[in-house]
């Protein structure tokens, strides 16, 4: 069974997206990067990100990740902010009752995007 199936697929993404986005918006370490953005569009992007991190179907490439975050890197986005997002993601899954072993797998998938997101 794939990671995505073990987590519960699209239903799991839908359950997680509001909780995750709320955590990010209230996280003083990173919420400045989200001020002034269209919340509805941002929520759709969070959903795409969660689908990818959950090992689900996605067509995002490293180049997309670089392009999509370049303006934030210019504003100072760095490893500490990436770590904060991964932490919020873990806390979201914990809240939904996901096991630590699966959370570690999700974090590992998210980790594969670090260099592209940070433009390294």
């Amino acid at each position: 069974m794939s990671l995505y199936q073990q987590l519960g697929g699209e239903a799991a993404v839908n359950a997680a997206v509001d909780i995750f986005y709320r955590k990010v918006l209230q996280d003083e370490r990173i919420n400045r990067f989200f001020s002034g953005v269209d919340m509805e569009k941002q929520s759709a992007k969070q959903k795409a990100f969660l689908t990818m991190a959950f090992g689900g179907p996605n067509h995002y490439t490293g180049a997309d990740m670089r392009r999509g975050h370049a303006h934030l890197v210019a504003q100072g986005l760095n490893d500490s902010h990436f770590d904060a997002v991964v932490e919020d993601l873990g806390a979201t899954l914990k809240e939904l009752g996901v096991s630590d072993a699966l959370i570690a797998q999700v974090a590992a998938v998210a980790e594969t995007t670090r260099n592209d997101v940070l433009g390294k």
Binding site: N14, A44, K45, K47, A48, T51, N58, H59
Partner: peptide, 25 residues
């Protein structure tokens, strides 16, 4: 995304039956 997530390819059905699964999310 071509995976039913980003909703960029949103279209509207004017006639006929909307295919099952095409409105999820």
């Amino acid at each position: 995304c071509r995976a039913g997530v980003c909703q960029s390819c949103l279209m509207r059905c004017l006639e006929g039956e909307v295919p099952a699964g095409a409105q999820e999310g």
